[in-house]
């Protein structure tokens, strides 16, 4: 019974941590998806110089650890006079990191569409942006849905890195409660929270994939 009481006592703290985790998660997705889409389209059909810049962007952001990027923005940029609030720094870094991965996923999707589709659209008299919007992108979305969903599930787990920036996310709160009370219950609760969220997302995305993969 003591155990139960203890859980109820720490639950509000844990939930406040969960709230920050959820906020960062949603904010990241809101920024990362448009970044990925725009960069992918430009990488396929933009001018040469933009292609080169975007190559550098995806190469650097996918080739270095997310934690290094977070440290760079949160601790490195203030050294050269750029100060962001920790929330903004986190969202900026997560969005650029996941944006880079999504760019490559979307680019792969666009390039996997058969050339005949472009030719057919041209024959029908469509402009480039019409072809993209009406023919290519809708087919691309269906193809990139599985890897995109898997990135979205990964993001939940990557939000735990916030704890190392000193932000009071689910992991840091449970770590603090553990240190204060010398009781591992908070860690167990964190495990359960993360498991519920990621299992829930896997289910939701699984249904989404089933629904949209009908036409392939």
């Amino acid at each position: 019974m003591d155990q139960m009481e203890y859980i109820f006592k720490i639950l509000p703290f844990m939930l406040s941590g969960l709230k920050l985790t959820a906020k960062i998660y949603v904010a990241t997705l809101i920024f990362a998806v448009p970044i990925g889409l725009l960069a992918a389209v430009l990488k396929v059909s933009g001018p040469q110089i933009i292609k080169k810049v975007l190559f550098l962007y995806t190469w650097i952001w996918r080739g270095t650890p997310l934690l290094l990027q977070l440290f760079f923005v949160a601790f490195g940029l203030p050294v050269i006079g750029i100060r962001l609030s920790s929330f903004n720094a986190a969202v900026l870094t997560y969005a650029l990191n996941y944006g880079a991965y999504l760019t490559e996923i979307f680019r792969g999707g666009i390039e996997s569409i058969d050339k005949g589709q472009y030719e057919a659209a041209k024959v029908l008299g469509m402009t480039y942006s019409q072809t993209m919007r009406r023919v290519i992108i809708p087919q691309t979305i269906r193809r990139v849905l599985p890897p995109t969903c898997s990135e979205a599930v990964n993001l939940v787990k990557d939000t735990a890195l916030l704890a190392l920036l000193g932000m009071a996310d689910l992991l840091r709160i449970s770590n603090q409660i553990f240190t204060r009370d010398a009781n591992i219950t908070s860690y167990i609760l964190a495990f359960i929270f993360y498991l519920i969220i990621s299992s829930f997302l896997v289910k939701v995305f699984g249904n989404l994939e089933k629904r949209y993969s009908i036409y392939e």
């Binding site: 890195l161 704890a163 860690y187 993360y194 990621s198 299992s199």
Partner: peptide
């Protein structure tokens, strides 16, 4: 192990 963060 796949459903929770490595850092946790």
């Amino acid at each position: 192990f796949r459903g929770t963060p490595l850092l946790l």
